[in-house]
Amino acid sequence: MTLGGQYGTVAVMLVFGAVLYAIIMLLNRLMRPSVPSPLKLSTYECGVEAVGSGWSQMNIRYYVFAFLFVIFDVEAIFLFPWAVIFNDLGPTTTPSALYALVAMFLFIGTLLEGLAYAWRKGVLRWD
């Protein structure tokens, strides 16, 4: 493969996906009727007139969950290379498999402590 190797193919596929969506929308544009009316374009709120803006306030809980997620997602990025290398480690290699295992347990343990703290603080409860 040329075109920058395998990830070049991914880039071409990305462009293809965008073009596919564009073609479908173009076909739709050619075939659809367009009869807008103020009532049709109003915001849907079960038949009654919409009160206030659709961009209303939201629950702050979502923000805390997003924070928790970022912490663990970064952890996951460190876990993947560890998982692949771990296979090639043994009792005699430097570092030994046991060393790598304990190191990762310490790392995950630190993060779990954070989760336990959030749990104890009641962040994970929804009421």
């Binding site: 479908i24 076909l27 739709n28 544009r29 075939m31 659809r32 009727p33 367009s34 009869v35 807008p36 103020p38 049709k40 374009l41 109003s42 915001t43 849907y44 919409a50 803006s53 659709g54």
Partner: peptide, 11 residues
């Protein structure tokens, strides 16, 4: 679906 009108709400 491809023949249906594409409604985008005014807001």
């Amino acid at each position: 679906f491809i023949q249906k009108e594409d409604i985008i709400p005014g807001a």
